[in-house]
Design a protein around this nucleic acid. Structure first.
Lengths: 337, 337
DNA sequence: TTTAAGAACTTAAACGTTTTCGCAAGAATT
DNA sequence: AATTCTTGCGAAAACGTTTAAGTTCTTAAA
């Protein structure tokens, strides 16, 4: 690999001059600069990020932490979209992204924080993890600039998908279409789904509707099978709901199956509502009535805020930023009478 | 950040001794080693990857290159699965992965190869790209260890999903279920789909079936709308096929829609077959008849081969490795008579 | 003409490691 | 008692950069 030294000797100048010429410092003559740059190009010089980072204490590399288990890895549509948008945004500013490895079972593995320190990440984005994991907390509390997505810590910038807005819109919509008997499948084990459920209750109350307790059931987040079973139960109720809210789009496909097996039609016999707006759903019929989270915007804002925090920590304020999504009307919710 | 120097001064030994102690060299006394390690832990020492890489010429970082455009980014199920498996495998061996940025529009961007050089990646995995892109070719031809997925170059290790096997199995299956009139939607613009089409023709010929030219149509890979339109055309043929092969699972959802709009039922009126075995498909009814590529195995093998190439380049042979997938029977192909 | 100021470079230290070689002292071999 | 071996450690160079602080010149101001 050709280094500054090679260019320096071939140009008959010092290494310092070469460095400054390539970094366009003002104390190098225009002709010398030109000569050095020519030579650099001719030799195919590429700077060494490692060496650079040793002097500057900046790696221009951002760590990405997210969960891997079961259904929630890269293949999680929400995260994949978020990551892609984030990646694109930071790359535009000259940053790369590297995953913080999260396989807890590897022998000799190091903590998230130590991994981040080892690579000297300029900053870290955290999404889709168990936010109460001590290792995650340790990372958040460290001196490394952090942005979290969809979870609030004190003193940390957070980009939030507006779950409250989403649930409000969905309830408004269902009510406006004449539904009163709405069942709700709560996705357990996630802080975002809690916000949704609270909103659901509150909103229904505003409409003066008391939700019978048997209309509220639980099923794991993003679990089609659980949703399938809970749906069967709901369908067997004496006073069957006219509409079922699912914790996410995946879950609602489990519901669809249960409904079909019972010989019922969506939306004629029963309406269903998802949450997320996963990409594939656009291609599949019936088109799901759901709330599409604006993952693109989440990624862009996470990138913008993290980079600001890295580059101008003094002026960047710690804040929570809400991003609204969009109601997708779809074909799975019918207007009653 | 605490460095070897800090440990050295606090332990009253030289930096060299600390380095050797932590790397378990044999020429340091057991008690000294112990003392140094204690102190390192006490001070919360974390090595500096950049400094280390300068001396060792190894970064333990692998570059990932893949396409971003339209439907083929991280959100491509095939790639997401491959990446996740690859990531998990290399992490187990102490490697991290960093994306090689692929936004061609960024001003001042550098080529793929230069990006890889800048970060001094130990190796690179290339998947899902335009393999004839000059920048990709340049990267492949360079001295950086490379493994490609689903595309063959000379002198490069390639892990291939066995498209030939897949198409053979699908045709065998369709034929065994009594289908003779099979239409084929060819996914243009991809080297893997070409292999499939060739196999389709050959296999049909083996069965003594001549496929009428109007049964062969084209539509972009992973394009539901194109598949929708081509399906409509196929359905309007006088001698309508009993079964349609799609270039991929996504496309087949476009087909499903067209069929439904024509008032036909799958599989009673017409059968359809996808390709890929995307994850969501498992949750959606009807269950697609398709060929599930073994993305997990692809990732594992890509990782294994790349790491071998990095760590023992002499003994690692350049080869093409085929990975077979699995026929998923699903519910979209009916037995005739 | 002296002095100050600028322009264009160089020197050298530093970042945090690894590694080769050297050296001392004790142990083992003649 | 003299030699060689072994063990345990340190000195110093090197990897490729950046940057503060000099050092020459040349030119402008006094």
């Amino acid at each position: 690999m050709v280094s500054l030294k090679d260019i320096a000797s071939q140009c008959g100048v010092s290494v310092a001059t070469v460095s400054k010429a390539l970094n366009d410092h003002s104390d190098i003559g225009a002709d010398t600069k030109e000569r050095i740059r020519e030579k650099a190009k001719e030799l195919g010089y590429v700077p060494n990020a490692a060496a650079k980072s040793m002097k500057t204490n900046r790696t221009h590399n951002i760590g990405v932490l997210f969960m891997d288990d079961a259904m929630s890895g890269l293949q999680h549509d929400f995260f994949a979209g978020l990551l892609e948008s984030f990646k694109r945004s930071v790359e535009r500013e000259g940053y790369d992204i590297t995953f913080i490895s999260n396989d807890r079972s590897t022998p000799g593995r190091t903590s998230y924080l130590n991994h981040a320190r080892y690579r000297r990440f300029d900053g870290v984005i955290i999404a889709n993890v168990h936010f109460d994991d001590p290792e995650v907390v340790e990372l958040v509390k460290s001196d490394i600039p952090v942005v979290t997505v969809d979870h609030i810590y004190n003193d940390t910038i957070t980009i939030l998908s507006d779950n409250v807005d989403g649930m409000n819109k969905l309830v408004d919509y269902a009510i406006s279409m004449g539904h009163r008997k709405i069942a709700y499948i709560h996705g357990v084990d996630s802080s975002v789904t809690k916000a949704r459920m609270t909103t659901f209750y509150k909103k229904m109350e505003e409409y003066g509707i008391t939700v019978p307790s048997e209309y509220i059931v639980e099923s794991p987040y993003r679990d089609t099978h659980g949703a399938y079973e809970q749906t069967l139960k709901l369908l067997e109720l004496e006073d069957r709901p006219t509409c079922i809210f699912y914790p996410d789009d995946y879950a609602s496909y489990g519901g669809l199956r249960a409904i079909a097996e019972k010989g019922l039609k969506v939306p004629d016999d029963i309406s269903i509502v998802g949450f997320d707006g996963i990409r594939v759903a656009r291609h599949i019929r019936p088109r799901l009535t759901t709330y599409r989270q604006n993952v693109d915007e989440l990624g862009v804002l996470a990138a913008r805020n993290l980079i600001d925090l890295i580059e101008k920590p003094k002026t960047t304020l710690v804040q929570q930023i809400m991003v609204k999504g969009k109601l997708l009307e779809g074909d799975t919710l019918k207007k009653l009478n």
